[in-house]
Design a binder for these strands. Structure first.
Length: 570
RNA sequence: CGGGAAGUAGCGCAGCUUGGCAGCGCGCCUGCUUUGGGAGCAGGAGGCCGCGGGUUCAAAUCCCGCCUUCCCGACCA
């Protein structure tokens, strides 16, 4: 491709709305343009990278026995009513967009479980046709609360999603493993360091699921991993090991009974700790109480150590103003466990609270706290569990070694769905060997292709521009002809190299523009093709051209007759 | 959804406090000169100052409402 013909404009300055490197550079180098918040155009260069990633995805999934199809992006809303997920539409869990059209309301597909289930269900009648795994590369729509970071979080995204259909759970798990391994190979070929982690399944559902995490400073996710045993989990799903003192908690009596303190306007943990600071008290000595409504809709007081962040189980929520009004034993800002059960409030506690104390807690009176509160003597716990976000240094739940916390981008997410959709969607059954009707056991597998483009740009760049790995670069070689307009020889040599490289199957972006050398060098760096070849009068006088590897900056002078051979061998 | 900031030429920004000809840099067009890391000179094109209303002789500037965008948080398949 000749630069003089390519639809691209590089920008000296980044648009003011670009915050992270991948966004800034992809816009500056002319790969993408923003049309609306979280909605991007892929210009020719950007689309070529997208296609390179897609080609790798297709190769690996095809090799794993998957079949590509293309599902509609526009779904009749009735399908979503059938699965029950239409009820989630207003929520944060499933921010779908709908359009009213002739024939009713359509959903702009945010994901495709419903559609694929009825599609495969209509084609498959017998166990003899199973297993089958299909996939598509498609645009999806999600009305993100907050699109950000360019292609990393968008409202319209290109995604690869695969779906497996099996006769039973064991077969489904084999299919799951096959796609899981294919995903690992895809990330490997893209040169991304990826860690599969245990995760929450969110609005997709199912039991076992894994996220594929790419460590990145701009990531919005965090996961923990154990260097000793390999345990890895999303921060939302991570657990830690808590060393519980052996035997029953000793009920020693430090002072006979708790002491009440007047602590006006000390409703925050940090403020309470400050109040008692002269006694050597830290936030870890405080019992943090959260008024919650559990998944059954019952009120409970959740206790955790004051230095930890709470992590509520799915379906739980914090008290709102009405809840507090209805439960006078729950005093916002001054919550304590003492006597809650007498008021019909269950006390649940994080494992980290399994020590006698003495604790400092709220007194269930506005402006008052208690010190010397002892577990077993002054309060009891109805249920223990894990209710705090795991932190770096916490003990691995498997082996007890310290956990590491890693910021990351979620590049893929796979789920063992089981019967969640096949049980409710019409026709999602097959006839088994015994002649009985059975629902499919399903799995689903998502990978953010357009997000991967951003992740790769994030991983591979420097101050001057992008540095594409050869596997995904839009072209392999940036061929810059310096001063071509005044040197017939430069033009002749560059034209010839362009043709010879193409004949070798090497894709070349040929900068034939009549612009100064500095512009060409800067655009070459910005666009970030793996190899830069410079044809200039200086080199030609010696019978050579320059070859520079963009990433390493290593430069070599090559005799004219060796250029094609050297580059195709590299 | 809560908090903050910003919308002026394709991009980056000044002008707004104190109302009075709409500006600068880059980019774009023409000509000449130049040519190994974003060239120089000269000339030129390009604007609903986000939108609507109000105040005023007069509004980019002051007031009200709305829209859009970005950041922090909440949330997130």
């Amino acid at each position: 491709m000749r630069m003089s013909r390519l639809l691209v404009r590089t920008l000296r300055e980044a648009p003011a709305d670009a915050e992270v490197a991948s966004h800034r550079l992809l816009v500056r180098a002319g790969y993408i343009r923003r049309l609306a918040s979280g909605v991007y155009t892929f210009l020719p260069l950007g689309l070529r990278v997208l296609h390179r990633i897609e080609a790798i995805v297709r190769e690996e999934l095809d090799a794993a026995g998957c079949q590509e199809l293309l599902l509609p992006a526009l779904h009749p809303i009735e399908l979503w009513e059938q699965s029950g997920r239409a009820a989630l539409f207003g929520s944060d869990a499933l921010p779908a967009m709908t359009v009213d059209a002739r024939g009713g309301t359509f959903v702009l597909g945010p994901t495709h479980e419903e559609v694929v289930t009825v599609t495969v269900g209509a084609e498959v009648d017998s166990y003899r046709q199973l297993p089958v795994t299909v996939y598509q590369i498609q645009v999806k729509f999600r009305d993100e609360a907050r699109p950000r970071f360019g292609l990393l979080r968008t409202r319209e995204l290109v995604m690869c999603d695969a779906y497996s259909f099996d006769t039973d759970k064991a077969a489904m798990q084999r299919s799951y493993r096959a796609v899981f391994d294919a995903y690992l190979r895809i990330f490997g070929r893209l040169g991304l360091e990826v860690t599969p982690v245990e995760a929450d399944s969110g609005a997709i559902g199912g039991d076992v699921n894994h996220e594929f995490m790419v460590p990145s400073a701009v990531g919005e996710d965090r996961f923990v991993r154990c260097g000793a045993c390999g345990y890895a989990a999303n921060i939302e799903a991570a657990r830690r090991r808590v060393e519980v003192p052996a035997g029953a908690p000793p009920v020693e009596d430090p002072g006979g009974s708790p002491v009440e303190h007047h602590t006006p306007d000390r409703a925050e943990i940090a403020d309470v700790a400050a109040f008692f600071a002269d006694q050597g008290v830290t936030t870890a000595d405080l019992l943090k109480g959260l008024a919650v409504v559990d998944a059954d809709g019952d009120p409970a007081l959740l206790l955790l150590a004051g230095d930890r962040e709470a992590l509520l189980p799915a379906g739980w929520r914090l008290f709102d103003a009405d809840d507090f009004a209805r439960r006078p034993s729950m005093v916002k800002g001054y919550l304590g466990p003492g006597g809650q059960q007498l008021h019909g409030v269950r006390v649940v506690a994080d494992e980290g609270v399994r020590r006698p104390g003495p604790w400092i807690t709220g007194a269930n009176r506005v402006g008052h706290h208690l010190s010397g509160v002892v577990l077993g003597r002054d309060f009891t716990v109805d249920a223990w569990g894990s209710y705090v976000a795991v932190e770096a240094g916490d003990a691995c739940p498997r082996c007890g070694e310290p956990l590491e916390l890693v910021r990351s981008v979620e590049a893929g997410h796979t789920f063992q769905l089981g019967y969640k959709y096949s049980a409710v969607m019409a026709g999602a059954t097959f006839v088994d060997e015994a002649g009985g009707e059975q629902p499919f056991s399903m799995g689903c597998y998502g990978m953010g292709v357009s997000r991967l483009l951003a992740v790769l740009a994030e991983e591979h760049h420097d101050d001057a521009g992008l540095q594409w790995p050869p596997a995904v670069a839009p072209y392999r070689v940036y061929l810059a002809a310096l001063g071509a307009s005044r040197s017939p020889e430069v033009t002749e040599v560059a034209d010839r190299l362009y043709g010879e490289l193409a004949a070798e199957g090497i894709e070349v972006l040929y900068d034939d523009r009549d612009v100064s050398p500095g512009v060409k060098f800067n655009d070459a760096d910005l666009i970030g093709l793996p190899d830069v070849v410079v044809v200039g009068a200086k080199g030609l006088a010696r019978g050579t051209v320059e070859w520079r590897e963009r990433r390493s900056g290593v430069e070599r002078e090559l005799p004219l007759d060796q250029v094609v051979a050297e580059i195709s061998a590299a």
